[in-house]
Simulated assay, not measured.
Amino acid sequence: MARQLDEQIAGRFPVGRRLRVLDVGMGQGTQALRLARAGHQVTGVEQDPQMISVAREALAAEPEGIRARMRLVQSDGRDTGVHFLPGSFDVVLCHGVLMYVEEPDPLLAGLARMLAQGGLLSLLVRNGNALAMRPGLSGDWAGALTAFDTTAYLNRLGLDVRADRLETLTATLAGIGAPLQAWYGVRVFTDTAADGTDVPDDLSDLLAVEERAGRSDPYRGVAALLHLCGVRG
C-alpha cells in the first residue's frame, strides 16, 4: 500500500514538494512517520489512547527534524472541521477506519473538505465485493454463503464491522468533489495468513506478486482490501 500511495503522490505533485498530510485513524503511526521521514508535514489523528502512546514513543525516537514535522491529535476523526480549516491539506489518508464507521458519508465529506484543490484522498477499506473469499478459502462454506449477500462481517478482533463496495464508494467520492482516480487491491493472496506468521525468506517475491496483483484485473477485484485514491476537483 505504501508503494501505491507513493506512486499516486509522485504522479500528482512536483518532485521535492513538501506536502501537508493529514492521517485520520493513523493507528501506531506507520504511514504518518514514513511520510514525515520523507520530509512532509504530517498531522496524525487517532482515537485509541494505546495507539497514540505507541506513536508518540516511536516519534520520540526520531531525529529532531522529523519530530518537528509531525503533530499528533487524539480524536475519532469526525470533528476535523473543529481542528482544521477547509483546504488545509494536500494529502488526506483514512486507512482502516471506514469499517468501524456505521455511516461513512459524513466522515468522507469532512475529509474531502480538508483537501486543497488537486489534493489526494487515500482510503483503505474492506472489500465488500469479496467478503466470501476468506471463509471460502478456509473451507467455511456456510460463512461464505452468508458473505455473498452482506457487507457486515466479524473481523479478526472479534468485532462486528462493515465493508464497502467499490461502486458505492465511487459514487460517494464523486458526490463529495473528490472523484476516484485510481484504485488497487491489497492482500490478494496473503489474506488467509494466520496472525503472527513469520516473515518468509522470499518476502521480496511475495511483495512483487501482491503489488502486481493489486493493480491487475481480475485479481484486484477479489482482494481483501481496496485502496481508493480520489482527487479534489
Rank of each mutant, 00 (worst) to 15 (best):
A152T: 11
G143A: 08
C229P: 01
A10D: 14
G110P: 11
R134D: 15
V97P: 02
A152E: 15
A208C: 11
S138W: 14
M70Q: 09
Q181S: 15
A60T: 11
L111R: 13
G81H: 09
S204F: 14
R156H: 05
R17T: 10
R67K: 11
I52P: 02
G96R: 10
V92L: 08
G214A: 01
D198N: 11
G136D: 01
L107Y: 14
Q181I: 14
D149T: 14
R232D: 04
R165D: 07
R34Q: 06
A208R: 06
G44S: 08
D195Y: 14
V125L: 07
G81T: 12
Y100A: 08
T151A: 15
D23F: 04
V101W: 00
V125G: 01
D202C: 13
V231W: 01
I52K: 01
I66H: 05
A55D: 04
M99P: 02
L22C: 02
A144C: 08
E211F: 05
G11W: 06
Q41F: 09
V45L: 05
F13E: 05
E46G: 03
A152F: 11
V82P: 04
G119N: 08
T151S: 15
A224W: 01
Y184Q: 11
H95K: 15
R37M: 02
W141K: 06
D191Q: 09
L121P: 00
L225C: 09
P200N: 04
R3L: 09
R69Y: 04
M133W: 07
L111I: 10
L173I: 08
G139E: 06
G143R: 03
G128H: 06
D191H: 10
L206I: 12
N127H: 02
A58N: 14
E62A: 13
T150I: 12
D90F: 07
N129Q: 10
Y219F: 07
T150W: 13
D48R: 05
T80V: 13
L206C: 12
D140S: 04
V24W: 03
V92S: 05
M99E: 10
A10E: 15
F89P: 02
A130T: 00
D164P: 05
R37N: 09
P200Q: 07
L145R: 12
L85H: 13
G16Y: 10
H227C: 05
A182N: 15
V15L: 12
L35W: 08
A147F: 09
V231C: 06
A178N: 07
I52C: 15
G118S: 08
P49T: 02
E210P: 03
L131M: 08
A178L: 11
D79F: 08
G143T: 03
P86A: 13
V42I: 10
V82A: 15
A223S: 01
D198L: 10
L5W: 00
R187V: 06
A163W: 01
V188E: 00
E46R: 00
Q31H: 13
L154R: 13
L225G: 01
G185K: 01
P135L: 12
E57S: 15
R126K: 14
V15G: 09
P104H: 05
D191T: 11
L145K: 06
P86V: 12
L5G: 00
P135M: 11
T80A: 14
G118P: 04
D160P: 07
G110S: 12
N129I: 08
L124Q: 00
A38K: 00
